[in-house]
């Protein structure tokens, strides 16, 4: 029996659209499912990021202190990191706040913009980083799959190649946006 690929998926500052595109790969999901163990991510129950992960798909920009610490730990525990989608690859929509100081941004939304309970939430929420940045700006990324979201066919192709132990050649197959 072929050893299954230990696959993790992570959701940082993004809209979950890339995860939706991932489960939207139609019948390809059957062959992929037979070859991978999904060991962590929003699609499974695991609470802690496991050790010795083969492939981690990262959706979303690195936006908070928590994202930053998590992705650094994920890098230590993963052989191959895939930045999945524009937020992880370029910063995309989350980076549109980067021209504004986080404090001013939070005041605008939670104080000026609030009807009731005015106040910036601090309990149980991580501090925002000064800017939301692409994953490769903080840890080494092995493969970039842009798209908002990346087409299901592109994701199916990437996973198909990765489970075969090949690095997919994405030239002209993917695009920003």
């Amino acid at each position: 029996m072929i050893k299954k690929v230990r696959l993790a998926t992570v959701w940082f500052d993004g809209c979950a659209g890339c995860h939706m595109s991932l489960v939207d790969i139609d019948e390809a999901i059957i062959s992929v499912a037979g070859r991978v163990d999904v060991v962590y991510g929003p699609l499974v129950d695991a609470q802690e990021f496991p050790k010795a992960v083969d492939v981690t798909l990262i959706e979303g920009a690195i936006s908070s202190q928590e994202d930053l610490e998590k992705v650094q730990e994920i890098r230590k525990r993963t052989k191959l990191i895939v930045a999945l989608g524009d937020c992880a690859v370029t910063g995309n929509v989350p980076s549109m706040r980067n021209q504004i100081q986080p404090r001013k941004l939070l005041e605008r939304i939670y104080i000026e913009g609030a009807q009731t309970n005015k106040g910036i939430p601090t309990d149980g929420v991580p501090a925002l980083l000064r800017q939301a940045v692409p994953v490769h700006q903080v840890v080494k990324v092995d493969l970039h799959v842009p798209g908002c979201p990346p087409a299901a066919s592109a994701i199916a192709y990437v996973l198909g190649e990765l489970v075969e132990g090949r690095i997919p050649n994405l030239t002209a197959k993917v695009k920003f946006g």
């Binding site: 930045a83 690859v89 980067n98 021209q99 692409p134 490769h136 799959v145 695009k175």
Partner: peptide, 21 residues
């Protein structure tokens, strides 16, 4: 610009974004 990135196989930007206002 987007089409050229696809054509030339630019899938990520190696340089730090300047995020100008």
């Amino acid at each position: 610009l987007q089409g050229m990135a696809q054509k030339l196989g630019v899938n990520s930007i190696r340089y730090a974004y300047s995020f100008p206002k």
